[in-house]
Amino acid sequence: MLFLNKDNFQRDVFLGLLVWLILIMFYFIFPDPGIHDIIQKVFILGLFAMSLNILIGYLGLIAFGHAAFFASGAYTLGLFLQSDFVSNLASFSIPVAMLLAVLVSGILATLIGAICIRLKDIYFSFLTLAFQMLIYSIILALVNITGGDQGLMGGFPKPPFLGINLGKPFDFYAFTIFISIITIVILRQIIESPFGYGLRMIRDNSERPAALGFSNQKHKLIAFIIAGSIAGLAGSLQALLDVGAYPEWAFWSKSAEPLFMILLGGMHSFLGPLMGALIFEILNDFVTANTRYYGLVLGLVILCFVLGLKKGLLDWILIKFNRK
């Protein structure tokens, strides 16, 4: 199959489960809720950053409106869980709402992506930014539905399903990490498949694949849809965590966050953005505990990476390691 690369699939599944089990043991070894919070946020934001890196790292498209899909996932989940239609499903309501969140984000990504991929370079970036801000404005304008600038008010029920009660911290922790790891394993398959190599080919030389009868636009659109759907999934997890959704998640500065993570972790290694999310969250936790001037520190760190290291940490480590 075009999207599957069987060789490493079993290995990846095994590694993924192993990491999941280790993190579950970690939960009991370190009972500090602060640490649990950081780990689950790293996975949520890591998914968000990894989805963006499909476009940036593998396709070379600097999308600057990725938070649109994060927010659409969050709002879709929240609104459906508040609606009678989904909450009547009782124990199935959360899985259904999450599926709908991914689906709606995927449809949104199809519509926006189909228009955006016609443009190149900076024009592509600006169009994604414009669409994202348009969605931000729509969220603010539809006060009756979205709660406007207050965010989605009133919370929503989180009924247990399959014995998982997301109201409990441990269930949420295990569930979020499990979903994230599954998604990462699937994403790995996509990236290592012929389709994934097609993306790299378009990035490195867009004329050559076109000359070989390769449909660049189709590949770009599919990548855009996958990226948008995963961002929507990350948004829905974030909404479950916060029991709400906020318009700032659709603001342009939210799109800058995954860019930072990609920069910090590295865009040329598969898990780079996840590592970036880890650095970002640890930095966030450490700095906000010690000073009010979070932006100042983050800005200086980014400056060091941009001008000093010139690549993400994981990229740098892998290059060092391979040389030896």
């Binding site: 940036i56 600097i62 370079d121 900076i122 100042l296 983050l298 800005g299 200086l300 941009v306």
Partner: peptide, 19 residues
């Protein structure tokens, strides 16, 4: 490339906003 330029400028925004 574009990403590096954007991030460099944005880091300056973060720094100046706090300064």
């Amino acid at each position: 490339d574009l990403l590096v330029q954007i991030l460099l400028c944005y880091s300056v925004v973060l720094i100046l906003d706090d300064l």
